[in-house]
């Protein structure tokens, strides 16, 4: 699977109600690597990421035209159940959002809804170890997930997402609510996780993309026509996008002319 395409996003238009939020963004996400999405606020990078596992379906006014291929299937095809898509493509959100239940139950949640027949405890431990949280919580697995600190909660959410070994892990600004130390540990974690999972990462922090992403997609905002519509400006190797951008807009953004 190395360097195969895990998710092939061919987004033509994404609407919230009548508002065209994103247009023309074709992003292939390579397996076994981290693809970063950067861009100014309002460019729709989170909206695009949320198309990868149909989280946008929770918003009633959401409409989508285009295709997102995952394992050769268009996940927006009529016959596809969004619930099953989300079981194969995990997500970590901007705000840590553990469930109001014990640490153990949080991580075991995905296993249980998938009716996992094996040793749940072992999978939970493995997920917590991969999320670099095991040593901190192994003595208090029965405590509420909400009792942890922000950084620990976010790692708990990562453990919850990877407990079922999803094919792809989507991370939507996973560090934006965290302090620099917690951010650093999550970044190290991402680099470690990419050996096992394909990761798509949205971040408002350009340096973070530079530090962890293999490929970077830069998205811009088109304000012609009086409305703010996001679109893909440039996609390439992270080093190339940051140091030798092909597009003038990317160059300006990298120099900090707007954000």
């Amino acid at each position: 699977m190395k360097n195969g395409i895990a998710i092939d996003c061919r987004l033509d238009a994404l609407y919230y109600g009548d508002f065209l939020a994103v247009r023309d963004s074709h992003v292939p996400v390579e397996s076994g690597s981290i693809t970063g999405f950067i861009g100014p606020s309002g460019c729709g990078k989170s909206s695009v990421l949320r198309c990868f596992n149909r989280t946008n379906d929770l918003i009633p006014s959401f409409r989508f035209s285009g295709n997102v291929y995952f394992q050769g299937q268009d996940i927006y095809h009529k016959s596809i159940d969004p619930v099953s898509v989300r079981r194969y493509i995990g997500m970590v959100f901007q705000q840590p959002n553990p469930f109001a239940m014990s640490i153990f139950d949080n991580v075991a949640f995905g296993l249980r809804i998938n009716k996992y027949k094996g040793e749940v405890g072992a999978r939970v431990e493995q997920a917590l170890r991969q999320a670099a949280l095991w040593d901190e919580v192994k003595d208090k697995l029965k405590k509420s997930g909400l009792s942890l600190s922000g950084g620990q909660q976010q790692r708990l959410c990562i453990a919850r997402a990877i407990a079922t070994s999803p094919a792809v892990l989507l991370m939507d600004e996973p560090c934006s609510a965290l302090d620099p130390i917690a951010t650093r540990s999550i970044e190290e974690l991402m680099l470690e996780l990419k050996t096992r999972y394909t990761i798509a990462l949205v971040t408002h922090n350009m340096q973070q993309a530079r530090r962890v992403a293999d490929k970077t997609a830069f998205m811009g905002v088109d304000i012609s026509g009086g409305r703010r519509t996001g679109y893909l400006v440039e996609l390439g190797e992270t080093r190339q996008v940051f140091e030798e951008p092909r597009e003038e807009l990317t160059r300006e953004y990298m120099r900090g002319k707007f954000s």
Binding site: N53, L58, V83, F93, Q94, N97, F99, G110, R160
Partner: peptide, 19 residues
């Protein structure tokens, strides 16, 4: 965000609501 979390992990509506 809690609803997003539970639907995001692939829970059905019944599982999300009840659990």
């Amino acid at each position: 965000k809690m609803k997003e979390a539970v639907y995001g992990i692939g829970a059905t509506r019944w599982e999300a609501i009840v659990k």
